[in-house]
Structures are given as structure tokens and as C-alpha cells.
Design a protein around this nucleic acid. Structure first.
Lengths: 144, 144
DNA sequence: AGGTATTGGTTGAAAATGTAACCAACAAGC
DNA sequence: GCTTGTTGGTTACATTTTCAACCAATACCT
């Protein structure tokens, strides 16, 4: 079989590139929340959604974060055990539980948002501004 | 505590965006190699490196793909069991084993590279060309 | 030569993820 | 009412990933 005109390099394969940079960027921030509060990425996400948008049922976090409900379920349990969130049954529909951060959880949220801002800025500083702009657009388009 | 002037949205947090789009893009291609050959992402990577760059020891795949050696070790074992690669001890340094694709493995490689090209093209088609260019640059800078 | 350190690679246990089955509460149809 | 279907959420099990310990071969040092 003959080689194609343009050899296919992994460095040009978008899913690979995305994965590599997502991992590289994610790891640095993970060190912060994991090292400081011993929480997982899924827990950080739940924490963030509740901190940013206020109390909501788990199903809404599932929809917003586009992750599987088991992941959320376990993250919620873990955060509850760490006393960062509390659940409250809805009286009208007793299947629903409204999740909300405790004061301790809110403090963690605020601290991590601070860090996230800093971290994000540091990442962006590595790019020319017009690339940063295009990057955001492209990622949103690809995230579908 | 007062709100910051600019509310921090997850959609603006680069690690989150990267992760979301990496997952979205990765999943589509995963269906192909997993569905067609029953291989994992780590196995596809090993397969790719060997198919693209020829025989090499595991440690070099580790270095190139920037993954942990246990992951590679297990991927190699799985590919060997599927008869897609064979190992050969180096006579000079008997710790090393040179990995190479079997003819069957090479066929899988060629098929998947075909698919990868197509898949990549389809992804890029969703972006304006100048964004695609900037995206690649940015991702490479961030993967650093 | 001998002793120690390093390297290439494997293995086992613990942690995390994905898949599917499950349960209770509600909704819809009759 | 009763049956069926759906929804919100959890649990159990298999698959993957991670972490640390491990082993054998080589390199280094005296």
C-alpha cells in the first residue's frame, strides 16, 4: 500500500490535540482543588454549579455539565460527606432533592473561583490574544 | 462577599472548555475503533505510533504519547493478545523489547488512519478556516 | 571484581468510571 | 381504583486508571 501524499501525523489529529491540551491544562488546576480540598473533578464541577447558579436539583447539574447522573450522584454524596453541601427534599415532588452549598462549601467555591480566574489568565497569557479569541469560539463549536 | 465585576462562568474556563470539547470529539472517534476492532484509546495510540513511525521500544511510545508506562504496558499486552503486534527482545540490551505491528495490525492501522482523516476533516468543517488554524496553534501551545 | 543506582517493564491493589439494573415517586390512561 | 410508563436518583458489577511496589538487566563507581 502506497503512502498518502500527506502523511498523517497525530499532532494534526484534532481529538488527540484536544485531549493532550485538556489533560495538560486540567492537571495543573486539579492539583489545586485536589491538594487543597481533596476533591475530584466531578466534585469541583458540582460545587461550581451550585456556587455559581445557586441551589438546584441534581438532574439540572447533569443537564448543564453534560455528565452522567451516576457521576453526579457520587460527587454529591462525597461533597455531602465533606460537609460542603446539603440536600433537601422537595415537598411537592418527593423525588427531587434540592442541593445547596453549606457555608463551608461556599467558602471553598469562592476560593477555587479565585484560583480558576488566576489559572485561566495564566493560560491565556501563553497565547496571542487573537488566537485566544478564536480558541474559545472553536472549542464552543466543537463541544457541540 | 460582593460579586466580582465579571461573573466567572464555567464556559469561560479554559480547562473546562477543553475538556468538554475533547470529550465530545473523542467519543465520536472512539465509537469507530472500539466498535470495529474492540480496542481502547491507549491501544489505538500505541497502534498509531507503531504504524506511523515504525518499530520502537515501549519507552519511546511513553515519551511520545506522554502517558504513563503502565498504560502502555497494558495496551501492548492487549494488542499482542489480539495479534496486532509482536515484541522482540533487543539482543544488545535485553531489557528492551522492540514493538512492531503484525500484518493484521498494519491493516487496522491503515483503516483507522483513513477514518481519522475523514473524522478530522468533518470536525474542521464545522469551523471557519482561520479559526481552525488558530485552534491548532493554540492547542499546541497549551499542550506544551 | 563487588556494591549501588538506574532503567525498562510488569504486577497487584485501590480508586474512579461506565453500564445496566434497580427502586420509589409521580403521571397518564383507562 | 389499577395498570403502565416515566422520572429522579442510587446501587452493584465490570472495566479502566492510578499508585506503589516490584523484578531483572544494565550502568556506574571504586
Amino acid at each position: 500500500m502506497t503512502e498518502k501524499d500527506t502523511a498523517f501525523d497525530l499532532q494534526d489529529f484534532l481529538p488527540y490535540l484536544l485531549n493532550q491540551s485538556a489533560e495538560a491544562c486540567g492537571l495543573g488546576f486539579q492539583k489545586i482543588y485536589k491538594g487543597r480540598y481533596g476533591i475530584l473533578r466531578s466534585e469541583w464541577r458540582v460545587l461550581f454549579h451550585l456556587g455559581r447558579y445557586g441551589s438546584m436539583p441534581a438532574k439540572e447539574i447533569v443537564a448543564r455539565a453534560r455528565t452522567h447522573k451516576t457521576k453526579i450522584s457520587r460527587a454529591v454524596k462525597a461533597l455531602e460527606q465533606k460537609r460542603y453541601l446539603k440536600r433537601e427534599r422537595d415537598d411537592a415532588d418527593r423525588r427531587l432533592e434540592h442541593l445547596a452549598l453549606t457555608p463551608a462549601g461556599a467558602r471553598v467555591y469562592r476560593d477555587l473561583v479565585e484560583e480558576a480566574r488566576r489559572y485561566d489568565a495564566a493560560l491565556l497569557a501563553r497565547l496571542p490574544p487573537e488566537d485566544a479569541e478564536a480558541l474559545r469560539r472553536a472549542l464552543k463549536a466543537l463541544a457541540g
